[in-house]
Simulated scan of single mutants.
Amino acid sequence: MSLTDTSLHSNCSAMSDVLNRIGDKWSVMVVGMLGRNGTLRFNELKRMINGVSQRMLTLTLRNLERDGLVTRTIYPEVPPRVEYSLTQLGKTLQGPISALWDWSAENHEAIIDARAAYDARENVVATQEPRKAAYAQG
């Protein structure tokens, strides 16, 4: 199935479904970390991903596993050891996510500057008197 025709509802639905999973912040971070570091344990991932809660990381890993992007391996030890790694399908995301990661790093400062300039313009407009519209009565 080709998703190139974006006018088809089924293609838009498929694109939305996939992008909702791989486009959320935590999924990008998990795939990026596993792609750069290989197999990791849960707490290693949690330490590497600044700001993620245990619950959010658990949900993200489950969803990525469900979608076939991450594999979870449980070792029967005391205490049990659980490791996560990218599947072959997950590894195909490394290129796009690395490119997004690099682009973000290269352009973050420019984006911050653009936001500040925009906010400054909006603040000037907000402090001006509201414009009065003249309406012709007829």
Rank of each mutant, 00 (worst) to 15 (best):
M1K: 12
M1C: 12
S2P: 15
S2D: 15
S2F: 08
L3N: 13
T4S: 13
D5T: 00
T6L: 12
L8R: 12
H9W: 13
S10A: 11
S10N: 11
C12W: 09
C12I: 11
S13K: 15
A14M: 10
M15F: 10
M15C: 10
V18I: 14
V18P: 12
L19H: 13
L19C: 07
L19Q: 14
N20V: 00
N20L: 03
G23C: 02
D24G: 01
D24F: 00
W26M: 03
W26R: 04
S27K: 01
V28T: 09
V31D: 03
V31Y: 07
G32A: 05
M33V: 02
M33I: 00
L34S: 00
L34W: 02
G35T: 00
G35W: 06
N37F: 14
G38T: 01
T39L: 10
R41A: 09
L45E: 01
R47V: 10
M48W: 03
N50S: 11
N50K: 14
N50T: 12
N50D: 10
G51V: 11
S53H: 02
Q54H: 04
R55A: 05
L59Q: 06
L59V: 05
L59I: 06
L61F: 00
N63R: 08
N63H: 07
L64R: 00
L64C: 06
E65F: 04
R66H: 08
G68D: 01
G68F: 07
V70T: 01
T71M: 14
T71Q: 14
T71E: 14
R72E: 07
R72K: 08
T73M: 09
I74K: 04
I74S: 07
I74F: 14
P76D: 12
E77W: 02
P79C: 05
L86Q: 02
L86N: 00
T87F: 11
Q88T: 11
Q88V: 12
L89C: 04
T92Q: 00
L93Q: 05
L93M: 13
Q94V: 07
G95Y: 13
P96G: 06
P96D: 03
P96L: 07
P96W: 00
L100R: 01
S104K: 14
S104M: 08
H108Q: 08
H108E: 10
E109N: 05
I112L: 11
D113P: 04
A114M: 10
A114L: 12
A114H: 05
R115T: 06
R115L: 13
A117I: 14
Y118Q: 08
D119G: 05
A120D: 08
R121P: 02
E122Y: 13
N123E: 09
N123T: 15
A126H: 05
A126I: 12
T127E: 09
Q128V: 07
E129T: 02
R131N: 06
R131Y: 05
A133M: 08
A134Q: 02
A136T: 08
A136S: 15
G138E: 09
